[in-house]
């Protein structure tokens, strides 16, 4: 592997398998990869290829069976559950396919809730939550509950919730799958913009072909390995190829 600077995310020889009864299925088979900051990296591939598992390992949601994983230069392998939670609290944001918003909370409260756990002062939390909602274009919808928002608006609230934490790493899992074309487009533009303007490392997993043209880098996976690593044309720095074994 040829790695120049410290990558935002790095996986080396990562293995992961799941057991169902006597059957052991290998999901990731000696996968290595590095992802750079300030880019929107898209992992695509057929379902069951291991892309979501890879995202969950890189984001510290679950451990790998073998291999090394580091994020922001910090190894994640040795961390216990609480330390991983702390790491995620400080450095990561998540956007899921389901918007996973609390029905009882307004858009503003959804965004402000995690900030309270970050230990931010009330005023700072409010400023950040409002700024994030304004950034996703929901300034006039801040006080509405999920039941009063459209699907696209809900996903924008989820993005604002991730964004308000000002994370260095933003993970998105099929963020556009539940959305129509226009809203899907809006969401992918936002993720792109976040990578550009905030210098955030955005790692997105999707099988939505509409996204391909918007990614800075496209990784294609199959059977637990990376088949292809491609940069979309005129991007600035050519960065190392994360390779599969």
């Amino acid at each position: 592997m040829n790695v120049s600077a410290t990558p935002a995310l790095e996986a080396r020889d990562v293995h992961k398998s799941f057991r169902a009864g006597r059957i052991v299925s290998t999901v990731l088979d000696g996968l290595s990869l590095s992802v750079d900051a300030g880019e929107l990296t898209l992992i695509c591939g057929p379902s069951g290829c291991g892309k979501s598992t890879l995202l969950s390992i890189l984001s510290g949601l679950q451990p790998a069976d073998a291999g090394q994983v580091s994020a922001l230069g910090q190894p994640l392998d040795g961390l216990d559950k609480r330390a991983l939670e702390r790491f995620r609290l400080l450095h990561t944001g998540f956007v899921f396919q389901g918007f996973n918003l609390f029905p009882a909370l307004t858009a503003y409260e959804q965004v402000a809730l995690p900030l309270g756990y970050l230990g931010l002062k009330r005023d700072t939390a409010r400023e950040r939550a409002e700024a994030a909602l304004i950034e996703v274009g929901l300034q006039s919808r801040m006080h509405l509950r999920p039941a009063e928002l459209s699907g696209g608006e809900k996903q924008r609230v989820a993005i604002a919730r991730a964004l308000a934490k000002e994370p260095a790493l933003l993970f998105a899992d099929e963020p556009t799958s539940s959305l129509d074309a226009a809203n899907g487009q809006m969401v992918i533009d936002m993720l792109h913009r976040i990578a550009r303007h905030h210098g955030t490392t955005v790692l997105c997993v999707s099988h939505d072909p509409r996204l391909i043209g918007h990614a800075d880098r496209l990784l294609t996976m199959e059977d637990g390995r990376i088949l292809e690593d491609r940069r979309t044309p005129p991007k600035v720095v050519a960065k190392p190829t994360g390779t599969s074994r």
Binding site: R82, E85, L89, T92, F94, F96, N100, L101, P114, Y117
Partner: peptide, 12 residues
């Protein structure tokens, strides 16, 4: 799912 999302975001 909402609780799981909060946990993903680092809420212990």
């Amino acid at each position: 799912r909402e609780y799981a999302t909060l946990n993903a975001l680092g809420v212990g």
